[in-house]
């Protein structure tokens, strides 16, 4: 499995309030919510994002609220992957649970620039910046978490577990 697209780049501490402002949280509808993805930090994100594109950010991406709406809108917009130096823990959990690929890789987050064309191979964790020609290796997930991702999210993995029992 892989994704390829252009990069949207952000700084440290991108919080869930800027990813999806609470004023829009009066609906659980992902399509409707996704119209406002990143609105308070980057008004043009929704206009410019295309399927497979990649968000690259600094430390503590997704800090703040536990709203699962945050990884959900990023995924619904077509974003193929988020690469950051680190993730806030609830966002990290939520992304895995809903099947949004995320990778921790400080070196890639430092060196990759906005609008670079990047390819991410999820099986190997290899991130390739086609614009600069440089490659990076992200930390692989523990087996337990890989299984959740393989099944397509937490609930699907629970169901799969049930049928194995």
């Amino acid at each position: 499995m892989n994704t390829q697209g252009k990069v949207f780049k952000y700084n440290d501490n991108v919080d869930t309030d800027v990813i999806i402002p609470a004023r829009y949280l009066n609906t659980p509808n992902a399509q409707e919510l996704a119209l406002h993805c990143m609105e308070d930090i980057d008004k043009d994100f929704v206009k410019n994002v295309e399927k497979g594109d990649i968000i690259v950010a600094g430390y503590n991406f997704g800090c703040g609220s536990s709203r699962e709406h945050a990884p959900l809108v990023i995924k619904t917009c077509g974003t193929g992957c988020v690469i950051a130096k680190s993730f806030a823990r609830i966002f990290y959990r939520n992304a895995i649970n809903i099947g949004l690929p995320i990778l921790e890789c400080p070196e890639a987050a430092d060196e990759i620039s906005a609008n670079d064309e990047v390819n991410v191979d999820f099986d190997t964790g290899v991130i390739t910046d086609n614009t600069t020609g440089k490659s990076y290796k992200a930390q692989p997930f523990p087996e337990f978490i890989q299984n959740i991702i393989r099944c397509g999210g937490l609930l699907a993995s629970l169901k799969a577990g049930e049928s194995n029992d």
């Binding site: 536990s66 709203r67 699962e68 990884p71 609830i90 959990r93 939520n94 649970n97 809903i98 999210g153 937490l154 609930l155 629970l158």
Partner: peptide
Amino acid sequence: TGVGSTDMAAGMAT
């Protein structure tokens, strides 16, 4: 600890 809605759903079920 705080979690997301999918964890809540799984927690309620299991």
